[in-house]
Amino acid sequence: MAESLDISVVIPLLNEEESLPELHNWIGKVMEQKGFQYEVLFVDDGSTDKSWNIISELAERDSHVKGIKFNRNYGKSAALNTGFKNVSGRVVITMDADLQDSPDEIPGLYDQIMNEGYDLVSGWKKKRYDPIMKTIPSKFFNFVARKFSGIKLHDFNCGLKAYKKEVVKSIDVYGEMHRYIPFLAKGQGFAKIGERVVQHQARKYGETKFGLERFIFGFLDLLSISFVSKFKKRPMHFFGSFGTLSFFFGTIITFWVIGRKIYEVQMGLPARDVVDQPLFFLALVAVIIGVQLFLAGFIGEMMTQSSTRKNDYLVSKKIGLRD
């Protein structure tokens, strides 16, 4: 059964007890109309309300529903990463639990993956119902993300996305990296990335999880992923290049200062001691920094060769999934 699934829907959530029954019914209606074989995986990111109780009740009534509950709040990236590791559908759909993402978009996203050959399709909420304090920063954020990543998407933040199964099984999502899954996918060689205009719903229940810190952390993660994507497998290229330049210029300046002192002494000209010249100490600092950067490159190379890093999040409960 698991191997024949058409679609896996992964829904990360935090304190969304009011919207879950309606979302579940909506997804089920769409799937039955289209005749999809599917599963819905709710990932409870440490909710403090009755969200997990509702997921448990839904799973008792509907075999399509599965659930994972974290012991505490780890963040959306952790929820998606864990969800990706536990799904089996040929196409994986992600969406938020607040009913702002419409399940009616699922068939169109599925078609783009299966029939148009896309590796990943990202939703674009062209018309939004969010307050201006969220939409303006979001537009600026997306502009910067496009420039850094080279991926022409209008809405990196949209939670409604579709992936080939191979994509989600090949990436590791952590920090606030859920915004940059297209970037991560591209780094793994999944370059056919598309976009689809999707309907955006006004929030019906609960409160927004939006905060200014999300954009601050988002930009830091953008810088991080830009660096990692280029130098993860070759840290010596980054650290070694700057280290070599720093060491080279520091050494040249040091010999120039010492050589000038020797020349002035031989010619009987007045001259300051080498150690009295600030330029000499700046040159020594450059040499030391160059050596340190070079060593950092070597250490980075060794860590890259031996790294087995993975993200483990403490799951307290599961429904319908193997341990």
Score class of each variant (00 low, 15 high):
K186N: 10
K127S: 14
H24P: 01
A202Q: 05
L120I: 08
A202N: 01
I288S: 04
E264P: 01
S307R: 00
V257I: 08
K232P: 05
F227Y: 11
D119C: 00
A59G: 00
L153C: 03
R146W: 15
K147N: 14
L295N: 07
W52A: 05
Q188N: 09
D45P: 00
I299G: 03
F140M: 14
D276A: 09
I55G: 07
R128E: 15
D276M: 05
P278I: 01
V274N: 10
E116H: 13
F280M: 06
I262Y: 04
F298P: 07
Q305T: 13
V144G: 05
L109T: 09
F156H: 01
H237F: 14
V173M: 05
I289N: 04
F42P: 02
F227H: 12
K76I: 13
D111F: 15
S122M: 09
G206P: 00
D104K: 15
M31K: 04
M236D: 10
I253N: 03
G194T: 02
K126V: 06
G194M: 13
G46W: 14
G75L: 10
N71D: 12
K50Y: 04
I11V: 11
S77V: 00
I181A: 07
F242H: 07
Q112C: 12
L20R: 10
P235H: 07
V9F: 00
G83I: 06
V43G: 01
V91L: 03
V168Q: 04
D221M: 11
K34P: 04
K127A: 10
R61G: 08
S316A: 04
I55S: 06
L41V: 07
E207W: 03
R146Q: 10
D155W: 02
L220E: 15
F140K: 09
V287K: 03
G268A: 01
N25V: 00
R72Y: 13
W26N: 01
L295M: 07
V198C: 12
E264Q: 09
L13Y: 00
L153I: 00
F242C: 03
F42I: 06
K204Q: 12
E105M: 11
K161A: 07
V10A: 05
S88F: 11
S307P: 00
K147Y: 10
